[in-house]
Design a protein around this nucleic acid. Sequence first.
DNA 1: GCGAGATTACCGACAAGTAAGTAAGCTTGC
DNA 2: GCAAGCTTACTTACTTGTCGGTAATCTCGC
Lengths: 216, 216
Amino acid sequence: MASDSRDTTRTRPATRQKRTEILNAAVEIFGNKGSTNGTLADVADQVGLTHAGVLHHFGSKQNLLLEVLAYRDQTDVAELTEQHIPGGPELFLHLVRTAFANEMRPGIVQAYTVLSNESVTDDHPARAYFEERYTTLRREVSAAFHELCAQEGVTEPATVAAASASILAVMDGLQLQWLLHPDVVELGEASAFAIRAIVNGVLHPGPELESYVDNE
Amino acid sequence: MASDSRDTTRTRPATRQKRTEILNAAVEIFGNKGSTNGTLADVADQVGLTHAGVLHHFGSKQNLLLEVLAYRDQTDVAELTEQHIPGGPELFLHLVRTAFANEMRPGIVQAYTVLSNESVTDDHPARAYFEERYTTLRREVSAAFHELCAQEGVTEPATVAAASASILAVMDGLQLQWLLHPDVVELGEASAFAIRAIVNGVLHPGPELESYVDNE
DNA sequence: GCGAGATTACCGACAAGTAAGTAAGCTTGC
DNA sequence: GCAAGCTTACTTACTTGTCGGTAATCTCGC
């Protein structure tokens, strides 16, 4: 979506690269400080420019923010979003793999975590982006569930919606805890466990919670 | 200055009430705008004071923030934190009930969501608070799991840590999605489903995810 | 029960700092 | 030699926190 249009048309390669550099710096800064707290000067410093220089390339802070998100999609989780995400049950494995991969890039995880939650606030520029993102992801996970249910001969659409949201939710929530306690919480392992539990919860719902309490 | 012994000593009732009013306003403002973006003047406006008036009561913005968090604990989830949280397997039911209850107070949920994620950023004043909070909560959930496992005659401490973090994670993650799409995501229902799935995942781990793909 | 003296609660004005954005001009590769 | 890439120098708009002052409220001796 964002992207550009013109990058390709009229910019020299050196410029292109500078912009990429700025985007990477912005990911780091916004990740470390949030988009409200991180300043253009912070970003500029990191790439050896003044804040006006950054503005020259991106026009406004808000625009930089949006381009950062677009950039992240395009490079990072291109795989996860719309590129060639595995369609069926493999999606779940893919999500687990993503969680493990994320253990290697705390910077981006932090940027994403901070920004997604910031987006909830009044008129945040990235709100639309995240609304759309979650809608898309939930739809994809739901589709995977439907395929899986069909494959396993189970009919249980009732919990699929809850499960789809839940899978995305654990992943996000674990990221937060992992960022706060990197060596207590194991992002990959925990995600794997939770996703497995949720998938199995759709296919073979076990006992109700109440049963563990009553029969005591 | 601030916390001073409980206010009871030296403040008159009208003042007490005013402070509570300010705290409630702050919850709303910080919830709507984040703690960085929300200003003292915003809070002050809401209670018919100037920002200096707010400062008079709370000393500094940072202190106000911390008092907001303490206040939330004390009133809101007093039940959930340390007050009289049910100890054993009932804890899980309690968490589910909390999720349903949260559907009725988006303001506080939003404040909490925004602040907890903001806390990840550099030197955020609330970071220590949230680190401690998650540590405590994970410990409590773990304890509940141990009790439950004992009760059910299962020995499986291996996944308990992951499961404990996961339960808190889903709850947080679902809150975010619910805030973005209040009428698509059902906070209570989804939390109930996910917690049940995770609990059962500890007690009776089902098939591995790989099995759904390989045997296709 | 009352009036002097101390405390509060609060406001207006201001100090100091920080951010985004603008304008105008230097520099350089092509 | 000219446009793109940047910088310097500002401007404008906030924000937090401080200060002095004022009015209301409490405390107490008498």
